[in-house]
Write a protein that binds this DNA or RNA. Structure first.
Length: 499
RNA sequence: CGCGGGGUGGAGCAGCCCGGUAGCUCGCCAGGCUCAUAACCUGGAGGUCAUAGGUUCAAAUCCUGUCCCCGCAACCA
């Protein structure tokens, strides 16, 4: 049953270089996208950059660059990181692109014409660092520097108008905000009366933005500027057919810090634009950098991204997907990375490949043996492998990525166990046909595992499939052709030796 | 009453929404195997699921109270 899957990440703010947070969300999106692709869905995976605003302007000034030059300098840094992490996005939006700007203006005009935008004058304490007005209590807390009293005219979006409608929507669409506790958090937030949203900045103060179509002295502020990317890219206002095909998005993946902007600001904007809401807004947790003492023998490993150089992108992607339960925070420590790498990838998965390929090379002429007639033991393995595919599909559509990875790895353990109990190295001497059957079964199981893990580890699994001489990527049992010649190989995941 | 997260065998974590014999990985102990990356497999020890009440035939799981721990500088997923 194939359908469409439109997944987004936030567009990242370019006032600094990319870090683990950006990388995690993007890898997660990539993994989901790849799972849906192998399930036969048509996928659209969108990510990009948020390039306007005060802080970008300031960062540019600090470097003696124009804002655009600053953005043009940072964009490749994101792009090259995505390349390094094997992110296969379908489009990469930069909010300074013309295709985006004109749609933002179109959206603003539409909301304005509808009467959902009004002018008001506001006076209050303004924090330059925060790029926003702060409340009196915030001001008296003394926590904000660079504060000054400011009075100015601005445009406001009538967010409050849609409050009740949003509450009703959230309550009647249980998977709209996930996980559950985030939904409750938002409903709690919505118990207070919602204010309206300031959506403009006078150019006199901040001109690095998209001009408001109905007032040339103003640019629009972050909300309309950035959030609209989710519809401008799939074709809102420019390509009706395409837009109809992709919108609404299946999921906006976000970090928990920007839940309010997505589940309240963005959704009320969509109400005003009379567009359907995304099916799901999923807020994942944060990676906490464990306070484990840095070990010298490991080098100065502090950041999972550094591990890519040493251990490869697949191992890092695996770790990130395996360790974090979506929605909760997780701890990163070099130690836990090494443990999971050694036990799951080196000892279980990589070693299984060596066992199988080694025996086939030694006793079976290096060719995939003929399975012959399966016994109940093999039938059991086969049905578990086939069941796995459905189970993983189901878990992925429920955003239980960790569970999905764990259940795939369970098959690896089952296969290791199977090897142990069947002992094809013994069978080769007493019952050659049985040995053939066992090794075919183990190899085929390994093939299924590799296909199922390919969204998480695209490179290593491709290597395994290549070694096995697997043609195609069908996760249905029986894909391996007997007599296919195996390729020789090095250990897939060399153990990390720790002193 | 600032906000949020959490307290489950030695460590790290699932499970909690949709109550029904407490699960996974690591570590430890003993054994097996010897094809393999000193890897793999089997068995075992170890938990009154923070705590006090409540609801229920039944609670880690639902409700209420209490205690404790963590994050909230910047940036930000």
């Amino acid at each position: 049953m194939s359908s469409k899957f439109f997944v987004t990440t936030p567009i990242y703010y370019v006032n600094d270089a990319p870090h683990i947070g950006h990388a995690y969300t993007t890898i997660l999106a990539d993994v989901l996208a790849r799972f849906h692709r192998i399930a036969g869905d048509e996928v659209f995976f969108l990510t990009g950059l948020d390039e306007h605003g005060q802080k970008v302007k300031q960062a540019a000034e600090k470097r003696n660059l124009t804002p655009q030059a600053h953005c043009d300098d940072l964009a490749p840094r994101f792009l090259s990181l995505w390349q390094k992490l094997d992110i296969r996005f379908d489009d990469f939006i930069r909010t300074t692109q013309e295709r985006h700007k004109k749609i933002v203006q179109l959206a603003l005009q539409k909301v304005y014409d509808k009467g959902d935008i009004y002018v008001d004058e506001y006076e209050g304490w303004y924090s330059i660092a925060e790029e926003r007005f702060i409340t009196d209590t915030e001001h008296s807390s003394g926590q904000f520097r660079d504060v000054k009293k400011l009075k100015e005219k601005n445009y406001f979006f009538k967010m409050s108008k849609y409050q009740q409608r949003l509450i009703d929507y959230i309550e009647s669409n249980p998977v709209f905000i996930r996980p559950e506790h985030r939904k409750n958090e938002m409903l709690g937030f919505l118990r207070q009366p919602l204010g309206d949203l300031c959506i403009s900045r006078p150019k006199a103060r901040m001109d690095w933005g998209i001009e408001i179509p109905f007032d040339k002295d103003y640019v629009t502020y972050v909300w309309f500027d950035a959030l609209v990317n989710y519809i401008s890219v799939p074709g809102y206002g420019s390509d009706g057919v395409r837009f109809k095909k992709w919108w609404p998005a299946n999921v906006h993946l976000i970090g928990k810090d920007i839940l309010t902007t997505h589940s309240i600001y963005w959704t009320t904007m969509l109400f005003s634009l009379e567009l359907p809401l995304p099916k799901t807004i999923f807020a994942h947790g944060w990676w906490l950098m464990g306070q484990t003492k840095m070990s010298k023998s490991l080098g100065n490993v502090v950041n999972p991204l550094d591990l890519v150089e040493q251990y490869g992108v697949d191992a890092v992607r695996y770790y990130l997907m395996r360790e974090m339960v979506l929605g909760l925070d997780a701890n990163f420590t070099p130690d836990s990375f090494i443990k999971s790498y050694n036990s799951d990838l080196a000892n279980d998965f990589g070693n299984l490949l060596n066992r199988v390929s080694g025996l086939i090379a030694k006793n079976h002429g290096g060719k995939i043996p003929d399975p012959g007639v399966l016994t109940t033991v093999e039938e059991e393995i086969k049905s578990q492998a086939n069941a796995l595919v459905g189970k993983v599909t189901q878990l992925i559509s429920a955003y239980q990525v960790q569970e999905a990875v764990v259940s795939i790895m369970e098959l690896v353990r089952i296969l290791n166990k199977y090897m142990e109990t069947q002992a094809p190295w013994k069978l080769a001497k007493i019952d050659f046909k049985a040995a053939e059957r066992v090794l075919y079964t183990a190899a085929e199981g390994l093939r299924i595992v590799s296909i199922m893990l390919s969204p998480v580890m695209p490179n290593k699994t491709a290597a395994v499939l290549d070694i096995l001489g697997s043609v195609g990527r069908s996760p249905v049992w029986g894909g391996l052709k007997p007599a296919t010649v195996l390729k020789t190989h090095e250990p897939l995941f060399p153990r990390i030796e720790v002193k």
